[in-house]
């Protein structure tokens, strides 16, 4: 059972209150009418499936019903940070490689 910190409720809650919602920080192409099929297909269908650090969206389904972002290690299941929508992660592959926060 994961213990997940909801940045909106300001508390750790049990995993059963949450739903995973896939990869975070997916940007819609600014001009869909004039982007290539490859770019559009990539936006619609193709998702990263990394081994290790992954930024995901989660939904606090039976709590405040807000989406938020989670940085999670897909190998150890360790949740490294959670942050609100619209914010950027503090822990990234680069910051880990640079020996900053793990």
């Amino acid at each position: 059972m994961l213990h997940i910190y909801c940045p909106y409720c300001g508390e750790h809650r049990e995993e059963s209150e949450f739903r995973p919602k896939g990869q975070a920080h997916i940007l819609r192409p600014k001009d869909p009418d004039n982007c290539s099929d490859e770019v559009w297909a990539d936006y619609l269908f193709f998702r990263d499936n990394p081994r290790g650090l992954h930024h995901e969206m989660w939904l606090h389904a039976t709590g405040c019903r807000k989406y938020f972002n989670v940085t999670r290690d897909t190998v150890s299941y360790e949740i490294l940070e959670t942050y609100k929508m619209g914010e950027q992660p503090k822990i990234t592959a680069q910051s880990r490689a640079a020996g900053g926060e793990k």
Partner: peptide, 10 residues
Amino acid sequence: GVTTTFAKAT
């Protein structure tokens, strides 16, 4: 007051 799971319901 919290919204949470209660006996598999909400």
